[in-house]
Every structure is written in C-alpha cells, then in structure tokens.
C-alpha cells in the first residue's frame, strides 16, 4: 500500500465542459494482427484536450495495441483513428515524425540510452528533431526540474533507481512540449510508492494543460486518482466512466 502522506491524490484538474474538438478519436476501430487474432474490436471513444484518461485492463485486453495505433506503429484494420483531426490511416510515412512530435511517449522499460547522461538523454529528443534549437540547456533543465531530477544531470541511467529512470524518460517526452502524453504501463516495473510518485507527476503534467493517456493494469493507482477510466476486455471497451475505478460492479458482472 501507499504511504500515508500519499493517501490523498493531488488536487484534481478543473472540470472542463467547453465544447472543444476532440484531440483523439477512435471510431469503430478494429485491429487484427497477422496471426488472425483480433486485438481490438469495434472500439470507439474520444479524448478532449487537457483530459486525463486511464485505459485499464488485463494483459492482452488491447491497451498496448491502442497505444501503438495512436503513435501509428500500427494501422487500424478497420475504422478510423484521428489525432488532432488527422486520420492516421491516411498519414503518409514522411508525415509520421510531425505526428510523433505532438506526442510524448513513455514505456514500462524507460528506453533510455545507457551510455548518455541524464542531461544528454533528455537533450537527445531535441537534438534529433530540431538540432538548431536555441536554449537547449535551459529547456532540458526545465524538463528535469519538472520531474524533480535537476540535481542528477550528469548521472547515467545505470546509477539511477527505476523511478528516477522513468522520470528521465518523462522529462525526455516533455522536453518538446507535446500536446499529448502517452504512457504505456509507466509503473509496470516500479514499487507502489514509486508508482504513486510517477502518477502524481503525470497528474501535474495534465494540470499544465497536456492531455494524458495512461495504459495500465495498476488497480490501486487508478482507484486513487478518480480520473476518467476506459476499461477493456478482450479487445473491447466494457466501460468508460468520467470518474471511474479500475473495476466496478458493472465490469465485474461482465
């Protein structure tokens, strides 16, 4: 369980009711992989700007497929996935980098470069997308300040704990100020306390105006946060609640 001072989630973002255009749209999406097994079946939902959404479900429920469709590592077999009004099926390969620059993406395994320092790992995201960008050091420092690692600039990933490594990955995802922040099992390798710290950080990022989508099977964290929950089972959405829990009576009944 979480430590007592972590028992209360941070202040929730204000309720947003303005009729803004959805930032993410899944419209009757089906995805079947080469082995013929359906990963997603008739999935539809929308995410508005500045929303915070948990996508929950057991392994194989389709959470990661959803993330892969969003970053266009995969293309839907049927239906439409739209990000910021752009249909990803129609996206040309050369347009893909522009889409990815709108997103910050973190994974369970952090995906850090072990030979680079913390600062270099974060700067890498800018160096490979916009090498001439001014004030690189300041932007890297700012991202590391947000994640609370401003004193670890010169450390290497191997010298950091799992939670700190995930924070570096989050800083790298944040450094080019994405509109959407995607996290696929960001706490999968972390202990409960550290996981809670990471989720608090994601909530802070959301407070700053970034849309956050987190795919997770971490029941405690989802239940504590009282954010929107999209629950999945066997490739289908079984529940979509504005202030949901990992599992409610309806889901259990299914």
């Amino acid at each position: 369980m979480f430590r007592s001072h972590h028992a209360q989630p941070p202040e929730l973002p204000a309720v947003r009711t303005a009729p803004t255009r959805p930032l993410i749209v899944f419209e009757r999406v089906f995805k079947t992989y080469g082995n013929g097994n359906p990963a997603l079946e008739d999935v539809s939902f929308q995410v508005r700007p500045k929303d915070f959404v948990f996508v929950v479900g057991a392994s194989g429920a389709g959470k990661s497929t959803m993330v892969r469709l969003l970053i266009r590592e995969e293309v839907a077999s049927r239906g439409h996935v739209l990000v910021d009004g752009q249909d990803l099926r129609r996206l040309r390969r050369r347009q893909l980098p522009r889409l990815r620059r709108k997103m910050g993406i973190v994974f369970q395994d952090y995906k850090l470069l072990p030979t680079l320092t913390v600062e270099q790992n974060v700067a890498f995201a800018i160096q490979v997308t916009n090498p001439g960008r001014r004030h690189l050091k300041e932007k890297v420092a700012e991202a590391l300040y947000i994640v609370g690692l401003e004193d670890k600039l010169l450390s290497q990933p191997g010298q950091l704990s799992g939670g700190e490594q995930q924070r570096v990955a989050i800083a790298r995802a944040l450094v080019h100020r994405p509109r959407i922040f995607l996290a696929d099992e960001p706490t999968g390798n972390l202990d409960p306390d550290t996981s809670w710290g990471i989720v608090q950080l994601l909530l802070q990022i959301n407070h700053r105006g970034t849309t956050v989508v987190v795919a997770t099977h971490n029941r405690e964290i989802v239940d504590l946060c009282r954010q929107r929950v999209i629950a999945m089972e066997q490739g289908r959405i079984v529940r979509d609640e504005v202030e949901g829990q990992y599992m409610d009576g309806a889901a259990q009944a299914l």
Binding site: P97, R100, L113, F124, A125, V128, T129, R172
Partner: peptide
Amino acid sequence: REIEIMKLVGASEWF
C-alpha cells in the same frame, strides 16, 4: 534502441 527512440520522438527518417 537509439533508432527506436529517434523514431518515437519524431526524428525524420533521413535524419
């Protein structure tokens, strides 16, 4: 790993 990260953060293929 480096290529994977470059693709994820939006580096162009030519880069």
